[in-house]
Design a protein around this nucleic acid. Structure first.
Lengths: 143, 143
DNA sequence: GATAAATCAGACTAAATTATCCGATATATG
DNA sequence: CATATATCGGATAATTTAGTCTGATTTATC
């Protein structure tokens, strides 16, 4: 298998994008997110709990409770979710798994991969999640 | 955690690059690869066995046996090892884990990721492993 | 032929990831 | 206050990935 983000992180990104696409509404119950995105309810719930601790989402307990973004979607970037769930180690570790891969002791792919990695980082930082709102809505409606 | 290649695949890539860097020698015992690359012997041995079935390396049993490339290193590309171990699904599946991500139903990152993915693919296909020989030797000698 | 050094094959174990379950607690609403 | 509907928190289960062990077989060399 080859992965970019862990399942947990993929689900977290999807769920946060989902929340960002609902900006007019109050909190959204985990069950709705689970249904719309086909993520096991308990699992997405747990992931959002952890994002609550990271300050990215907030939760309201009890009847008509649920999850919502903790701040203006213009101030949240995809990298925030990745950092909270998977961490940022992929942006510093060697793509071939060699130890101490750096400009002094580069692996054969060091330079090429370094470029790609920077672009991947940019992809996750250049835009805030509000920017993805319409695209997310369109994607969700196709599911 | 965030991964590009599985550990198995990282080890496989390292081991094949190692073999390619030893082109003048006959077969290399798994133990040497294990020692030089700090990969558990039985594990790298298993990985090379599977690459034998894929036709990328050959093995010789018995005393002074070991592994070697099955063909001219100019005819082996990194993608061959990736395809044999991790498969190529990462080059077609959605980076956010959405189902049926395609130009008609793109996820919010579809285009950007598509570009990066192509470049990652190119990184693994544009050069044969003989091209990495010197870089590999330099890296190995620093371990 | 005996011995040593290697792969081969398959079962097994360990660890990490993914997913589920359940009881407790909080809260909106009648 | 009772009820229904949520999250919260912790334990547990299932699955995948990573790694280990052992015994058999092969082969070079003395």
């Amino acid at each position: 298998m080859t992965v970019i983000f862990s399942k947990k992180c993929e689900y977290g990104l999807q769920a946060v994008l989902y929340l960002a696409a609902q900006s007019e509404r109050e909190v959204i119950p985990a069950e709705e997110i689970s249904n719309k995105l086909s993520i096991p309810k308990e699992f997405v719930s747990k992931i959002l709990q952890s994002l609550t601790e990271s300050g990215i989402v907030i939760s309201r307990k009890g009847k008509s409770g649920g999850f919502a973004l903790a701040k203006d979607p213009k101030r949240i970037q995809l990298i925030d979710i990745v950092a909270a769930i998977d961490g940022l180690s992929m942006f510093s570790s060697c793509v071939l798994g060699f130890p101490h891969c750096n400009p002094e002791n580069p692996c054969p792919l060091h330079d090429k991969w370094g470029e790609l990695r920077s672009k991947a980082y940019a992809m996750l930082t250049d835009e805030n999640i509000d920017h993805f709102r319409n695209k997310t809505l369109r994607k969700i409606s196709s599911l």
